[in-house]
Design a binder for these strands. Sequence first.
DNA 1: CTATGGCACGGATT
DNA 2: AATCCGTGCCATAG
Length: 473
Amino acid sequence: MLLQNQSPVLRPQTTAHLAQTMSLLELTSGELKQRIESAIASNPALELVEETRCPQCHRILPPRSLCPICSRPNPISSDQPIVFISPRSIIMDFEYDGSESDNSQEDWATETENLPTFVFRQIAPELAVEDRHLAAHILSCIDEDGLLTVPPIEIARYNHITLERLHNVISLIQHAEPTGVGSPSPQAALLVQLDVLSETHNVPKLAYEAVKQGIDLLSRHAYHELAKVLNISKTEAQRIAQFISENLNPYPGRAHWGDIHQCGEAPHTYQNPDIIITQYSDDPDARLIVEILAPFSGSLRVNPLFQKALVEAPADKINEWQTDVEQATLLVKCLQQRNHTLVRLMQVLVVLQRGYILHGDSFLLPITRASLAEELGVHESTISRAVSNKAVQLPNKRIISLSKLFDRSLQIRTALKEIIAHEAEPLSDTIIADLLLNQGFPVARRTVAKYRSMEGILPARLRITNKIYQENP
DNA sequence: CTATGGCACGGATT
DNA sequence: AATCCGTGCCATAG
């Protein structure tokens, strides 16, 4: 019966199988959840079986499986991490208490970019119902820096509304966390931040003017000119500049993503993890535990009862039922394939990047997707798909994009930041390139320049001699 | 003359 | 096949 069933199913659909596995691979757990929910809703042959729990640690487990952690004889230290699919679903609850449930929610909730979601949640209560769609639209236009790149007029025209109404909504967005998000320019973001800051803190009187009139001077560190414009002394100007660079952020979107300024519990993070890495104990040699989050508790399978019933199916239904079973089988298989791939991927990856996972940016090894693909014996595009769009939570509670583990330049960029942070006097790009070479990073001078601008570091000429850097790990 | 930013090419990524 | 990123070459600013 099995053969009868499967050969006609699998042979013609091998390509479909492959294609579906691929498409499942690149899904976030949240997206996967939706995908599976809709599949279950439309296909009676699919069944979600109940979860079980490990008697010792109460982890939720797939049915009939042993707890991957408690069942290990020696779980404490080993090079090999424990990697497993964890059906606990701490995932993606985009609902906020409002009575919101219309289509605009889908628009943004399914996006993998979560800064918009984060902001939307905050402003939702204050938002008029008819402006929700508008807010979602605006938020979707925000770039990684948290700035609104599309000119407001275009948005207004597109939605057929007045500029005034648009500006009301934008202003609401700007005053949400991170303050200034959704501003059309760094300058506007700074102004909003000053505005908010002045309600609770003592803001230098001229800071506002400095930003308003001297934004370009400020960014070039041209203090004498700034002083002239504001009609104050140069040291005054420097003080104001200092205040601004310490308290304001021209790119509101960058603040929360990478930096480690809050070490406590994870604050609002913009992205829900797909993978969670924890340490078994405080021992630095302790084994790493990698949980790949499945989007539902329990596990998915083809309903055996339905399959049995197939034999006695009424004549008019038999075709329909048959395809249901076929599709269900396919989906389950693809899902297993996805999980299998992810597990193997993480197993290798975690071993390789252990240093980074435990000790931070400067230990990141430059791994290429291609090399990993070779090691695993899969096509590189498979890795590429598996890696994209996924977020991973590290033991220190930071959530980063999985693709960061493949970032060839991060290690160098942190080294570069180190150098500049500790420099006694501004070093030119050429010298920095040499220093990096000594540390084992052969980078071109030109590239140093690029990394600098990436990190928002000014050219040597414009740096102050003994600049104090706020961000120190 | 030196330090940088812009443009374009080749390899990696998707 | 389209796109992104590191790099080399050249023009420009100081």
